[in-house]
Write a protein that binds this DNA or RNA. Structure first.
Length: 307
DNA sequence: TAGCAGGAAAATC
DNA sequence: GATTTTCCTGCT
């Protein structure tokens, strides 16, 4: 059943679903197909309206509005981060890009898999895991697969995960799946903490002898920003680091700035990461995460600029 | 705390 | 076709 969602706040589906915050959407013609909460969702944008359909009754306008956070006005958020001409250019160029409300477990697992990989590869890994362990969902005569719950992956064998091309990430995924399933690490509870408490919990809480393996500050920030609604989280990947180095040298720690100025690869130490992301949160404010994703898109789109 | 390995695929040369 | 890079983290 097809239905229409009228937009009362700006949204660009293309920018949003093409921004690298999710890994499960594909565009065919002018329609995007994705799997959200175990259901297939098809969306195509026609100006101020979204034409939608889904694989079950559960997919309705409330479902779509929730996923795209249409209950939150975008303009005030963008105004709040537009502190200078650099970010203004990115905001104008990708106006309508929103941060969606991802499922927590899928988001954490996806960004755990994202280390040392590019977007096509991440999409492939997430897709392989879904095809192997997720549930099959039919839609428009095609087959889709849900992202498997942590319980399903907790019962998997690391060797099985390795056959999916996950490499060294395989044991990390299994470890975190076990922690979330039976190890007492409650993602819903973490989402209710303050940003600092939540990040601290993700990075330092011991589960037996270890913390969550494969979850460092970058993965934690992505999880908190993209699935927990913590808009102040400011994940720093290589693209954002480069953009900051070129346009916001003041926000980068002196030593990192020196290394990057020498043209060395953007190897960000944990200390660099904390310093820089704290400075970025201070500069851009409580919606710094939006600044981050606009900056990321701008940098990846090849318009680096010289600042 | 700095340096390095890690697995594989995409970009780039 | 070979090399470098890739939305990083864990271990020593």
């Amino acid at each position: 059943m097809e239905f229409t969602v009228a937009l009362d706040s700006p949204l660009s589906v293309d920018y949003t679903l093409g921004s690298g915050q999710t890994f499960r959407w594909k565009k065919k013609g002018d329609a995007w197909y994705g799997v959200v909460r175990g259901q297939v969702l098809k969306v195509s944008q026609e100006g101020e309206a979204l034409k939608c359909s889904g694989s079950s009754q559960a997919v309705d306008s409330g479902f779509v509005r929730d996923y795209f956070r249409l209950d939150e006005a975008l303009d005030p958020v963008l105004e709040s981060i537009t502190k200078d001409d650099q970010i203004r250019a990115a905001v104008e160029r990708f106006y309508g890009l929103r941060i969606v409300r991802q499922e927590k477990w899928e988001c954490l697992a996806s960004f755990l898999l994202a280390t040392n990989a590019n977007i096509p590869r991440i999409q492939q890994m997430v897709s392989s895991v879904s095809m192997k362990f997720g549930d099959r969902v039919e839609f428009e005569g095609g087959e889709f697969f849900s992202f498997p719950g942590p319980g399903r992956l907790a019962e998997s064998k690391v060797s099985e995960l390795r056959t999916l091309g996950l490499g060294y990430r395989a044991p990390f995924l299994k470890h975190v799946a076990v922690a979330v399933t039976a190890g007492g690490f409650d993602l819903e509870a973490v989402a209710k903490l303050s940003y600092e408490e939540a990040r601290d919990s993700l990075l330092t809480r011991l589960l037996g002898e270890k913390t969550l393996l494969g979850v460092g500050p970058k993965v934690a920030d992505c999880f908190l920003l993209y699935s927990c609604g913590m808009a102040e989280a400011f994940p720093i990947d290589v693209w954002v680091a480069r953009a900051l180095a070129g346009r916001y040298p003041r926000l980068i720690g002196a030593e990192l700035r020196r290394r990057m100025a020498r043209g060395e690869a953007a190897k960000i130490s944990r200390r660099d990461y904390y310093e820089t992301s704290a400075a970025a949160r201070k500069h851009f404010g409580p919606n710094a995460g939006y600044a981050q994703i606009y900056m990321y898109m701008h940098a990846r789109s090849g318009d680096e600029g010289s600042g």
